[in-house]
Design a protein around this nucleic acid. Structure first.
Length: 584
RNA sequence: GCGCCUGUAGCUUAAUGGAUUGAGCACUUCGCUUCGGACGAAGGGGUUGGGGGUUCGAGUCCCUCCAGGCGCACCA
């Protein structure tokens, strides 16, 4: 039983005397302010209200009783009653040392991560990224890519089996527009497919993006032509397939490069083109029970369920995004029968998901009901306008990476990169900076993207954490005892000095690590982990500033502390999908 | 019009109903003969959009008003 649970039980026991049979949930929390102790409970205030007594008195009584207990409260050094009626608890240095430094796991740099998480044995599919082919990748897609990867890692470390799925829109009107557009562009510019084939991934993708913009602009004027093109695509018309397959591959190659750079490998790619037929069939089979025909289209009458009505199959007989999702749901379930499927998608899709979830519940409640969750990502907008791939007014991921990379390279020019592997380090820092800037905010937050100061390299940033990690490693390289302190070597760590305030604070912070990770995983909130790592790094830097590690009398202990801080930073960053260079 | 979401310092934001709303950027000072200065310390700057209510306690929950975002039938 861990300390928190033991404490909770002890408090519950004391509280029992005040209640006649009734049970009260005792909440034990980690206070936000460190001078409020390691744990706190508000139980006295709740009791005070119930009994009509002064909460301070009740708190004193409970605290008095708890202080008298030995066994159950082992490890709690101090119990304090504060103002309105909080009871605060402090852990003893010994317990902190035991748990943080000497349990062997930390010091050998094995994972300090929770082993038997609440998500043990849960099968979770995380569906994210889903860019559409024949367009460019914009920073909204990037946000879900980065967030999805981090959440997947958090779930995995909490015991879940995770399946990374990516469902991509490679068929539909947007493809027809893009193909129409590039055909016209090639004519205008005297290009042939052969020449375009020789271009790089980004140029091809940009060309498709341009085609899409043109196709959208000219849609009204060439409505029939583009609509027909769309229908021939759905019909796998051999006339159009070679061009379609080729351009589709351009997009996929282009995206593959981002997945690689951002460190994501999908277990499987799913495509709208592959589920269009099955989706259509499923919808048609459920006309009457779930769907209804109206004006030649097949719709889902959402009003019956407090939602809104959406079209699943168009008058032309093509399945819409909604219709295709019916096929996709089965295809994905077949690939990985899940307990939970998370859709990591922008908030603008919230209404859409309510409708398709409801439709799937009705079609097959056993497989789908209560098992789907839309993690609603806030919108990424430009500071002064909305991005639209239709008008070409978007920020592409290529552009952003180049901007950040240029800033990092500036540092390299100033000779600030100490690593021998300069190129590799620049890439790690660039990607780390971008990822952290995305992850440190809440997932639901709308983000107004400021082009000027979009990604920061100092302060609360990815590079700050990477830098702090590199610093820990540098200190460890300098120390002669660094490699001698190892598992079970407790004598060397014996504390023969009073701990400095900064040392105690680091121990307390490190002690919180696994709880923080649990909480970040349960709430699907990587920003909780970001926040923790930032505070940890700041506290280490303060310690570092004030106290010497190498050559000090407490070198063995301080080296061990530095090791654990380094390992925690590295593992934490890994959960965010960020690499930690040994030198930078 | 109907529905969902958001409003915290100049900007970007944090805060499981808890304690004096905490950071980063920017700004003003200060600290390297010291293990990595991409660092650290100090300072100014807030009626948490306004007003009610519930609660021992509200940025957080409820109502209302204001401001903004997103969705609402053949796009994805």
């Amino acid at each position: 039983m861990n300390i928190k649970t033991r404490l909770q039980t002890a408090i519950a026991l004391s509280v029992k005397e005040y209640l006649s049979g009734e049970t009260l949930i005792v909440s034990v929390e980690v206070p936000t302010q460190t001078d409020h102790g390691d744990y706190t409970t508000n139980i006295a205030m709740i009791l005070g209200k119930k009994l009509g007594r002064n909460p301070m008195e009740v708190a004193e009584e409970i605290a008095g009783e708890l202080r008298g207990k030995g066994e159950e409260l082992q490890g709690i050094e101090r119990v304090e009653v504060v103002k309105p009626g909080f009871i605060n608890f402090w852990l003893s240095n010994n317990v902190l040392l035991q748990n943080v430094i000497m349990n062997g796991k930390n010091i050998s740099r094995d994972p300090v991560l929770p082993q038997n998480g609440v998500l043990q044995d849960k099968r979770i599919m995380v569906e994210f990224a889903h860019p559409n082919t024949h367009k460019e990748m914009h920073i909204g897609h990037m946000r879900t890519l980065i967030t999805g990867e981090s959440i997947s890692r958090l779930l995995e470390v909490s015991g879940a089996t995770v399946f990374r799925a990516n469902y991509q829109g490679d068929i539909g009107p947007h493809v027809a527009r893009a193909l129409f557009g590039i055909t016209k562009l090639m004519q205008e510019r005297g290009l042939t497919l052969e020449t375009v084939k020789e271009w790089g991934h980004s140029e091809k993708a940009h060309f498709l993006g341009e085609g899409y913009v043109l196709g959208s602009k000219e849609y009204e004027a060439h409505k029939d032509e583009i609509d027909t093109l769309n229908t021939t695509l759905y019909a796998h018309d051999p006339e159009i397939m070679p061009l379609y397959e080729l351009t589709r591959m351009w997009s996929l190659d282009y995206y593959e490069e981002f997945y690689r750079r951002f460190g994501t490998t999908f277990d499987q790619l799913f495509f709208e083109s592959e589920v269009a037929d099955s989706g259509k069939k499923i919808v048609e089979e459920h006309v009457g029970r779930v769907f209804v025909k109206e004006n030649g289209a097949i719709i889902f009458p959402g009003e019956k369920y407090g939602l809104h009505t959406r079209v699943f199959i168009t008058q032309a007989g093509n399945p819409t995004y909604e219709g295709k999702e019916m096929g996709n749901a089965y295809a994905e379930y077949k690939a990985f029968p899940f307990d939970l499927k998370m859709h990591i998608v922008a908030s603008e899709q919230a209404g859409y998901f309510q409708v398709v979830f409801k439709a799937l519940d009705l079609i097959d409640s056993e497989k789908f009901e209560g098992k789907q969750y839309h993690l609603s990502m806030g919108m990424v907008t430009l500071t002064d306008r909305k991005m639209s791939s239709r008008t070409g007014d978007i920020l592409t991921v290529d552009w952003l990476i180049d901007q950040v990379r240029a800033k990092v390279m500036l540092l390299a020019k100033e000779g600030k990169i100490a690593s021998e592997k300069v190129d590799e380090t620049i890439e790690i820092i660039t990607i780390g900076a971008i990822k952290y800037s995305v992850l440190k905010g809440g997932t639901g937050q709308n983000v107004a993207f400021d082009i000027e100061k979009s990604v920061s390299l100092d302060g609360n940033s990815g590079p700050y954490l990477q830098y702090t990690y590199a610093r820990t490693q540098s200190v460890l390289r300098k120390s002669r005892v660094a490699n001698r302190v190892s598992k079970g070597d407790e004598k060397q760590l014996a504390i023969n000095h009073t701990l400095e305030a900064e040392e105690t604070q680091l121990l307390r912070r490190l002690f919180q690590c696994s709880e923080v990770i649990q909480s970040a995983a349960e709430k699907y909130a990587p920003n909780i982990l970001c926040n923790y790592l930032y505070v940890l790094a700041s506290e280490f830097n303060l310690f570092y500033q004030k106290h010497k590690v190498v050559g000090s009398e407490q070198e063995a202990f301080r080296v061990a502390l530095t090791q654990v801080v380094g390992a925690t930073l590295q593992q934490g960053l890994t959960l965010l999908g960020i690499k930690s260079p040994e030198k930078m």
